[in-house]
Nucleic acid binder design. Structure first.
Length: 605
RNA sequence: GGCUCCGUGGCUCAACUGUAUAGAGCAUCUGACUACGGAUCAGAAGGUUACAGGUUAGAAUCCUGUCGGAGUCACCA
């Protein structure tokens, strides 16, 4: 077998077991105790016979023999010490060890017996994860999709590892950008509302944001045409001046401005709620920048008193990070208003105090790596011990074939449109295949949503979060191969077998003593067996991709088994029951893994 | 320009953080439904892991340099 997903032996049962075995063998052979580091275990390469492999090079100094001789000695010793070790073979410096099938059957029995196999509850940390963090001047786009899916899946994975997780969203609901939409609506809107136009609120507001930009460009070019140079002209654009006036009014809490702001934001929130709900992500708490943007000022004063920050002649406050290889950073403007990082400093402190959390995770694009580096450093300089517990889950940009998305150039991929496209493609395909014809429209719709969204979510989550990824709207809509629907299909097919078994009143056992199982079946058991450490690894690396690759491997392995062997038609009763038990467990593992990714699996498709 | 990250078959992604012949999927070609579901499976072809050195028994992985790409260095957020 092969592992496309190659699990790291991170606190695994198997690695520890192997190390214990080998340590004893080495002790008995050479009279010396060796460290875990010297006992290097890996999963046996697919082209060789065996389950686990010992790399003997690190042990040569202890054995004082050739690699082959050492490996053979250890292999022979292991075989005599442990009956569950069936055979071994040596290739160069590699000792391949093969376990007897009863060993693997026992592993499967243990896994089946434990309903929460791989999951742990309690004993974890209290964490907070912030994700999504949209602006209220335009709808969510592809970049947010990656952010939302990552945040939601990582929260699930951390919870499955026993942590208690608070999911929060920080909505950027104030500033010039929203004033631009507001101004354009005032000027050109003629009172248009989501109700009057039938448009989704966030899309409606987004249109006015674009409308503002057109107007700005038009006025700017008119001024330049009038013979004024560009730099000067930029300061004279009437709509720009009006926007700044509006922002001043907002900060002064001018009633009319606040009313408009609240009205338009409420449209946007209704739109966001719909998108989040369609996407299947949720939050425990939503913060609004309009309520938090003033926080952090007290920290600035504290820093000034401690001498960590300094004031320039114009009254602006700075921190000097040149000693840490960075620049000077502004914390308070000369007019004493705060900037982005001031607010982040304040909210971080608030959250730590309010929720008593041990770790704060920010799901934010890697374009803000510098920002978070600075944020952490400043909090350290202020003397907060928890500064180290801040973790920036930095993910790569989603690029289109044409390059980076640019909202002004209209190359953004809208989240709602994208989801709709995926779902309608799934619907078209289902119709073509005709497998759902006997279902009601509501049921068909539900299945097609699962498939369309499953394809999208899996496509995005299977990529290592850290990496920049490419999204081709045409080519990415694929339902064959390494995709979400492939995995969903495997699940649906197992379900079909289980349904039939149920109809035949077959009781699927919880234990098996079946002796004559095949290599293929052992491969599947090995994958099931490795789930607990996979889940731990995914949490350690904050990477849903680890789970995605795992579940793909188990689905692929099962499909091969399915084609090669009979399950319900198997004549040997014991073998039939074993295969049903194995199939059921695979279905459970697929369902649970996909659930971690926020992907539902259909019983039929 | 300084700092950070990245470069793996035509394309999209893996590779247990140093280990055996670098794996999948898509696309291309060839096969498999009177079968428990063909959104599947079997097979073929496709690679000097950007390049050049170095460390090691062993390098896609670690170090140095070169080339190429991305991000960031705002009294924006």
């Amino acid at each position: 077998m092969f592992f496309n997903f190659a699990p790291k032996f991170y606190e695994t049962g198997m690695e520890k077991l192997m190390q214990t075995y080998i340590r004893l063998a080495v002790e008995q052979l050479y009279g010396t105790t060796v460290t875990d580091k010297q006992i290097q275990i890996q999963i046996t390469n697919k082209d060789f016979e065996g389950d686990y492999t010992l790399v003997v090079f690190p042990l040569l100094r202890t054995s004082r023999k050739t690699p082959e001789a050492t490996a053979n000695e250890i292999g022979e010793k292991l075989k005599s010490l442990y009956p569950e070790i069936k055979s071994y073979n040596v290739i160069k410096g590699f000792l391949n060890i093969k376990f007897a099938s009863v060993f693997w059957i026992q592993r499967l029995n243990d896994a089946v017996e434990n309903e929460n196999f791989g999951f742990s509850y309690g004993n974890g940390k209290k964490l907070m994860i912030e994700y999504s963090s949209p602006n209220t001047n335009k709808p969510l786009h592809l970049g947010h999709v990656r952010n939302n899916l990552l945040g939601y899946a990582v929260a699930n994975i951390l919870e499955a590892n026993g942590n208690s997780v608070v999911k929060v969203n920080l909505v950027n609901d104030r500033g010039v950008h929203i004033c631009k939409s507001m101004l354009a609506w005032q000027k050109f809107g003629n009172g248009e509302t989501p109700e009057s136009s039938g448009k989704k609120g966030d899309h409606l507001v987004g249109e006015y944001y674009v409308r503002y930009d057109h107007e700005y460009k038009k006025q700017l070019s008119e001024i330049i045409a009038g013979g004024i140079d560009e730099e000067q002209a930029k300061r004279k654009v009437p709509v720009q001046i009006e926007v700044q006036e509006m922002l001043r009014k907002w900060e002064a809490k001018d009633a009319e401005t606040i009313d408009l702001w609240e009205k338009m934001n409420s449209w946007v929130y209704a739109g966001f709620d719909k998108t989040y709900s369609d996407m299947g992500v949720s939050f425990d708490k939503i913060y609004y920048e309009s309520q938090t943007y003033l926080s952090g000022k007290n920290l600035v004063n504290e820093g000034l008193n401690k001498g960590v920050f300094f004031k320039k002649e114009d009254g602006s406050v700075w921190v000097d990070l040149t000693g840490d290889g960075l620049d000077q950073k502004l914390l308070l403007r000369s007019d004493e208003t705060s900037v982005y990082i001031t607010q982040d400093l304040g909210t971080a402190q608030q959250r730590i105090d309010e929720y008593n959390i041990e770790q704060m995770i920010y799901v934010v694009g890697n374009e803000q790596n510098y920002h978070f580096q600075v944020l952490k450093l400043i909090l350290k300089k202020l003397g907060f011990a928890w500064a180290d517990s801040i973790y920036h889950l930095s993910y790569g940009m989603v690029e289109l074939p044409e390059g980076k998305m640019k909202s002004r150039e209209g190359t953004v991929v809208d989240a709602d449109d994208l989801m709709e496209l995926m779902i309608s493609t799934a619907r078209g395909m289902s119709k073509e295949l005709g497998k759902l014809d006997d279902l009601s429209d509501v049921e068909i719709d539900s299945v097609c949503r699962m498939i369309g969204l499953g394809a999208l979510k899996y496509f995005i989550l299977k990529v290592d979060p850290k990496k920049t990824m490419l999204f081709d709207p045409k080519e990415s809509i694929d339902f064959n191969g390494n995709t979400g629907p492939f995995i969903q299909y495997t699940y649906a097919r197992i379900n079909s077998i289980l349904r039939k078994a149920h109809e035949q009143q077959i009781q699927i056992p919880q234990k098996s003593q079946c002796a004559n199982i095949s290599e293929k079946e052992i491969s599947i058991i090995k994958l099931i067996n490795i789930f607990p450490e996979t889940l731990k690894l995914a949490a350690k690396e904050f990477s849903p991709a680890v789970i995605a690759n795992y579940v793909y491997d188990i689905a692929k392995e099962f499909n091969q088994f399915y084609h090669e062997y009979q399950i319900l038609r198997e004549e040997n009763e014991e073998l039939k029951l074993f295969r049903l038990m194995l199939s059921e467990k695979v279905a459970i593992m697929i369902k649970k893994s996909m659930k971690l990714l926020g992907i539902d699996v259909p019983d039929r498709m």
